[in-house]
Structure formats: structure tokens, C-alpha cells
């Protein structure tokens, strides 16, 4: 095992709808252990104030301070609804 593997995690980040104007639809990113949702938003220069719907592994209502784990799928949406 490489040294980096102990320090970093790999996360699958997805952006949807209008957010694709400012971020890629999908990207595998490597982040330091201890990263949160805010770390990802910073990485893609999305303001912390932006209203978003964030799902981690399919679970909604994630907060900015939620810790990200290795292998997580983080799906980020703008406010939306329909039906």
C-alpha cells in the first residue's frame, strides 16, 4: 500500500441540472482524509452559500460539514422539485 492511500480518499462527485454550467457532470476526485462536503464545494469553486441538494450514497439532506468517506458517491443538485 502506498503512503498516499492512507492520507487520501477517492470520491465520485456528480453535478446535475444548472450546476453543469459551472462544474463537470461527473468527476473522480482525490481528497485528503477528513474532507467534508465543503471541501468538495471549494474544489469546484462553488460558494458555500449556494443553495444545493446534496446526496451521499443516495441519502439526501447532507450538510456542508458532513465527512466524506473513501468510495462515497456525492451527488449535488440545485434546488429542484417536480412531479
Amino acid at each position: 500500500m502506498k503512503m498516499d492511500d492512507k492520507k487520501n480518499i477517492t470520491v465520485n462527485v456528480k453535478f446535475f441540472a444548472n450546476l453543469r454550467d459551472i462544474a463537470p457532470p461527473k468527476k473522480i476526485v482525490t481528497l485528503p482524509i477528513g474532507s467534508t462536503v465543503s471541501t468538495i464545494l471549494d474544489l469546484f469553486t462553488i460558494s458555500i452559500e449556494t443553495k444545493l441538494i446534496i446526496l451521499i450514497n443516495g441519502s439526501p439532506h447532507q450538510k456542508r460539514e458532513t465527512l466524506i468517506k473513501d468510495g462515497d458517491i456525492v451527488a449535488i443538485f440545485p434546488p429542484l422539485a417536480g412531479g
Binding site: A17, N18, L55, F77, L80, A81, G82
Partner: peptide, 21 residues
């Protein structure tokens, strides 16, 4: 106007409901 529902229609739900399983 210009929000996700206005821009993509009700089908904007496909991805989020799919992500939610």
C-alpha cells in the same frame, strides 16, 4: 424563472430520484 424546474421541466427529477435509489 431560470430555476431547475423551469429550465429542465419535471424530468429534472430523473437523476435525483435515481441517485436516491
Amino acid at each position: 424563472p431560470g430555476g431547475a424546474l423551469n429550465s429542465f421541466g419535471t424530468s429534472v427529477l430523473v437523476n435525483i430520484i435515481n441517485e436516491a435509489g
